[in-house]
Amino acid sequence: MSSSLKSRDPEPAKTDAQRSALIEVRDLSVSFVDKHGERFSVLRNIDLSLQPKAIMGVVGESGSGKSTLANAMMGLLPKNAVKEKGDIILKGKVVDPIALRGRALAMVFQDPMNALHPVMTIGTQMVDAQRARFPNHLIRELRKRAAEMLTKVGIADPEKRLSCYPHELSGGMRQRVMIAMALLVEPDLLVADEPTTALDATIEAQIAELFRASRDTLDGATLFVSHSLGLVSELCDEVVVLYAGAIVERADVAELFNAPRHPYTRALIACEPRSDDQSDEAMVSIPGGLPDLSSLPAGCVFASRCLHASQICRQIAPPLVTAGQNHLAACWHPQ
């Protein structure tokens, strides 16, 4: 890991977007320590910048660190996680995300079944969620706001729903409640960690639609973490591709999917089965697996699985550099 640090460009390439950012992540690295004291590097040198009203997609497979990134931005890292370095910057100021939870930051989780408290009513939870943001409002006012927001996210009969317990609602409804909760806070950053993964297809479509519509209500930025390339391509403005804890590519959505530069991004897109493709050809996969996160290779993290890997790829980690209009890629041999 240390060699990859040294080889990095000290001044990360800045895009236009970064200069007018609402919220930024600067040079963030996170490790996990297991019970034997071994360190696993989960995120390395992450730079991100999000614009107001924009949805930034974060894609990657298991072990890519995408959920850790989401949690780090919320100050919700687990106890065994160590933030090695890096800052979260809100409107130009370095901030502690823990102090901003429920005020400038809000989150929607993957599993709507367990994300709501099982023995408290929806109303109580929605009121409590607004307390940090609106400490001087009366409970009655907060409850009224909650009911109005439920209507906005497509829940009929909101007054009745407020006195429901989570188990009385369907999975899709609970996720609507979670989104309503996030929007009530009027956050600068809404973090959504795989918010549709646990839902059925037709419900997923409803929730994706809701995120799209939420831009009308939400002035802040959205970080949308997902393993579904299709969903990200339909919903997001900008996309970050993570592999083994590092950003391998970052670009505007159309650019990323039309002209991917990194071999991993290209391979990932090729792996995605398409419904109109019924050829008998074998399906594409990426041979090999993730590198050992406790002792990362000296060079590019993807080198061992990359068809284009050369000598330099195995020795020196490629920096994230400009690879087109508002497009960055970390590859010695961009395609």
């Binding site: 497979e61 393993h227 792996c271 074998a282 996969s285 041979p287």
Partner: peptide, 11 residues
């Protein structure tokens, strides 16, 4: 299954 290994399994 991650999509990068799913194809292998389906093949």
């Amino acid at each position: 299954l991650d999509v990068s290994v799913q194809g292998d399994f389906l093949n």
